[in-house]
Amino acid sequence: MRVGFTVNGREETADDVWEGESLLYVLRERMGLPGSKNACEQGECGSCTVLLDGVPVCSCLVAAGQAEGRRVRTVEGLAEGDRQAPIQEAFVECGAVQCGFCTPGLLVQAHDLIERVPRPSDADIREALAGNLCRCTGYEKILAAVRLAANRRAENP
């Protein structure tokens, strides 16, 4: 089938997409957007997190047909032009990136959190990010980065 949706603000279509392909696969292998990662393909790790109609989802479990006509935003689309999103800047500043494989999914999930919740508590952050597994960092710097980005976001709404 042909599937068409908006990705990072641009209309994209893909032809000969099989119904069983996941949104993650379509983004990575057909649309040249390999930023979102496949680490478990079961929705158990969050590495494939993208925004679907503004809401974070595990794209590995979204069948291609379900994405038809909708708005998708990936890690590649978090930046506004040349300017990184607050969460991206904060991750680099705080040293929250190690191997980087969980990073794209975390950025999307954390970006959504600080957009929705003005000053999330540490417990809020931990719970919101509980679906994003990281094996490297021990999470501490990720938490620091989210706090920093949230504070900056709250100061610049």
């Binding site: 929705g43 969050g46 997190t49 679907l52 809401v55 974070p56 989802v57 595990c58 479990l61 979204v62 999930q109 919101a128 509980a130 679906g131 994003n132």
Partner: peptide
């Protein structure tokens, strides 16, 4: 139940 991402869907 689950995670935020899964609950959203």
């Amino acid at each position: 139940g689950a995670s935020g991402q899964l609950r959203n869907v």
